[in-house]
Design a protein around this nucleic acid. Structure first.
Lengths: 144, 144
DNA sequence: TCATGAAGCGTGTATATGCACCTAAATCAT
DNA sequence: ATGATTTAGGTGCATATACACGCTTCATGA
């Protein structure tokens, strides 16, 4: 308390857990995005393609839930993928409310091409941190 | 391989470390933003105020470095804070290139008001995960 | 001094993220 | 059957994030 700075509210913890985690996420994102650069995909987009590849056609809300994303966020994240023709979104037949998102052939190709680059990023990150540690941390934080 | 799904590239790891971390960051962000809601601040903005409070006036680039943010990102993040009168950005005197960002009185007040809410979020998160674990993880990931 | 390179910033563009609010379609209770 | 409720989506708005490109100002060496 000689500095003249700080709200002087007793300070205490210095680190914002949220800030720390957000920063780490930005760093990782940069690593993956760099690796994926040649494919023109971002890691966010890659993740969506990957989910659709594994699960098949999904209504937007389900897809959002799979990715733990806000529904409207997912809807908008689909836009660039649709524009590039990697994903097709069609009205549901049984339930007219549903809009099913599904991979196109081009989408499957793009995913296949991106996989090695993604693995490279996974590998690079694995050299810095134990993926299992990240997973267990994330699990502790939970979804909500 | 009976499913008809998947690129069939041998699969292997199922979890994208980046995706896992991004998801966790989104969850934490939501916790903090909810807690800060009454103050009208986001956790990102809170973090900026906090840095400025501790370090005093800083040129934008330095401020960005402190937060491990891209320079232009920081510049834009200052906008809403400036609009709300919590931060003032003025041209440097010694060096006309510098643009110094500094807390206003209102900014200091806002920060002081936000602190208890932030602590509440810190506490809630601490119940789920060990902050030290998050820090060591982030440190392992490093900045670049 | 003055050309040149470096340092600090801003803008354009594009994606990512979530909230508040609204519409339409299906479901359900009476 | 029909009115209320629930479910699936969309839009407007605001912030967050980063890259590419370009401008201004400072420092420096010939």
């Amino acid at each position: 308390m000689s500095d003249g700075r700080g709200t002087g509210t007793g300070s205490g913890e210095d680190f914002c857990t949220c800030g720390v985690l957000r920063r780490a996420a930005r760093t990782l994102t940069s690593v993956y995005d760099s690796a994926l650069k040649p494919t023109g995909l971002r890691v966010t987009q890659f993740a969506i393609l990957r989910i659709l590849d594994k699960a098949g056609p999904l209504p937007v809300t389900r897809l959002a839930a799979e990715a733990a994303l806000e529904r409207t966020t997912m809807a908008r994240n689909l836009d660039p993928l649709e524009r590039r023709g990697l994903v097709r979104v069609a009205a549901g037949e049984a339930d007219a409310r549903n809009r099913l998102a599904e991979l196109t052939e081009a989408g499957r190709r793009a995913l296949a091409e991106a996989l090695p680059h993604w693995r490279r990023a996974q590998e690079e990150v694995r050299r810095r941190v134990d993926p299992a540690a990240v997973r267990s941390l994330a699990e502790a934080i939970g979804s909500h």
